[in-house]
Design a protein around this nucleic acid. Structure first.
Length: 415
RNA sequence: GCGGGCGUAGCUCAGUUGGUUAGAGCGCCAGAUUGUGGCUCUGGAGGUCGCGGGUUCGAUCCCCGUCGCUCGCCCCA
């Protein structure tokens, strides 16, 4: 049993700069998503296990080995969400939102996967998430990819990520291709790696991006997805590409980029980076037109993406804190309550105020400077008696007495 | 889940061919300076040497296990 003071394996605390990085990322995300007309959504971090089994498939790795499931006191099997899409789809059905289509959602929060932790991979991690429902046209694909592109750009990562794009085709194209692939790999099954042999059973498309050198030789001769696309699927992908070209969003087509789950169709994409080792995917998305129907709802188009906040946090530069902190420094016991009242008044007036409570005036000034304060207000018996407060500019060290009544005005530059 | 590397103070790290009180820098607290900061000086707090077992007269050091981190695989954000 691990000591109680240790966090659970693969979890971590967000404190200080880590917390600020996360806050900055979610703030950027909200700003960009709102500009695209998305509305916020928050769903529970756990669902009935069935929700994930129905949507992710019994055989997917996420469900088979990565899921945090437990039985609650009522005997129900519950699962901590490994991703957001299933919960959003369930919420769509639970709340009868079909009448409100189309819908554009943005959300974020913790996700849970029981995996071996490594850099950029945690058991509790955080994602920002976009889900578009009821928009079957390629314009939605273009818009949603553009949203991700703008989001990464807002974080200053435009030059450090590359957009990889592929199509899986519609259901018919995909089924035909899958069959051809199974045929081909079955013919070479004696030369496939053990991992790929397993993939042949439950997820043959995944063999295409195997890292095993032997597999790669076989993959070279494998049938191409592009050759199995029917005209409608080809036209859809061409429209998506034309849209990205028109918006000036660069991408590379990567035919080995696949999605394992059956309900995915058409566009799949990832923004990848070389800066994070084995966990290079920073944002991944796809179209999931079959999902809602698979859950028992009406046939409803869906497309979305998720990005890992921790992975992004490792890449961004933390923007400087631009708050102006006003430090209030009482001198002597008699000044303590008046100083607190002063701090209270200034906070209500919209200033950011830190009030020192310990040590000499020198210590308090020192602490104020370290906290990033730009100006200090010194309030002692002398000032109290005269109805003023001493305003000290911490950069220039200039001091001036300011009548209490004029304080807000005298602090205007530091608001 | 599989394989490799690493765990000494809050942080970055020294150290011991196994030997008595485990060190440094930075950070933190305090004093010099009882109403004035960024420098300097002085002092202080802070360590089950990850945890458990073994070998040994003696283990932070060697061995085993375990927990955690890390790199890769699987998979994915």
């Amino acid at each position: 049993m691990a000591p109680a003071v240790q966090p659970v394996r693969g979890t971590h605390d967000l404190i200080g700069d880590d917390a600020r990085r996360h806050a900055h990322i979610t703030a950027c995300f909200r700003g960009v998503a709102e500009r695209y007309g998305c509305q916020p959504i928050a769903t529970p971090i756990f669902e009935f296990t069935e929700v994930f089994h129905r949507t992710l498939g019994e055989t997917s790795d996420v469900v088979a080995k990565e899921t945090y499931s437990f039985t609650d006191r009522g005997g129900d099997s519950l699962t901590l969400r490994p991703e957001m899409t299933a919960g959003v789809a369930r919420a769509f059905l639970s709340n009868g939102l079909a009448k409100d289509l189309p819908l554009k959602f943005y959300g974020w929060g913790p996700m849970f996967r029981h995996e071996r932790p490594q850099k950029g991979r945690l058991r509790q991690f955080h994602q920002v998430d976009i889900e578009y429902l009821g928009l079957p046209e390629p314009q939605a694909d273009i818009e949603v990819v553009a949203l991700g592109h703008d989001f990464l750009g807002a974080l200053g990562l435009a030059t450090r990520v590359e957009l990889r794009l592929n199509t899986l085709g519609d259901g018919a194209s995909r089924a035909a291709y899958r069959a051809a692939l199974v045929d081909y790999f079955t013919g070479h099954r004696d030369r496939l790696s053990a991992d790929s042999l397993a993939r042949l059973e439950r997820n043959p498309l995944r063999i295409l991006d195997s890292k095993d050198p032997g597999d790669r030789e076989i993959v070279v001769g494998a049938p191409r997805l592009s050759a199995h696309l029917n005209p409608a699927s080809q036209a859809f992908f061409a429209a998506v590409r034309a849209g990205l070209d028109a918006l000036g969003i660069p991408y590379v087509v990567d035919e080995r980029l696949v999605r394992g789950l059956d309900y995915y169709s058409h566009t799949a994409w990832e923004f990848v980076t070389a800066d994070l080792g084995a966990q290079g995917t920073v944002l991944g998305g796809g179209r999931y037109d079959g999902l809602i129907e698979m859950m028992g709802g009406p046939a409803t188009a869906g497309i979305g993406w998720a990005a890992g906040i921790e992975r992004l946090a490792m890449m961004i530069d933390l923007p400087p804190d631009r708050r102006h902190v006003v430090a209030v420094i009482p001198v002597g016991d008699a000044a303590l309550l008046p100083a607190m009242a002063l701090s209270h008044r200034l906070r209500q007036a919209g200033f950011t105020v830190e009030q020192g409570a310990r040590g000499s005036v020198g210590k308090r000034l020192e602490r104020a400077v370290k906290q990033g304060a730009a100006v200090a207000l010194i309030l002692g018996e002398d000032e109290l008696a005269r109805g003023v407060v001493k305003r000290r500019d911490l950069a220039s060290r200039d001091e001036v007495d300011v009548p209490l009544a004029d304080l807000e005005q005298a602090l205007a530059p530091w608001r």
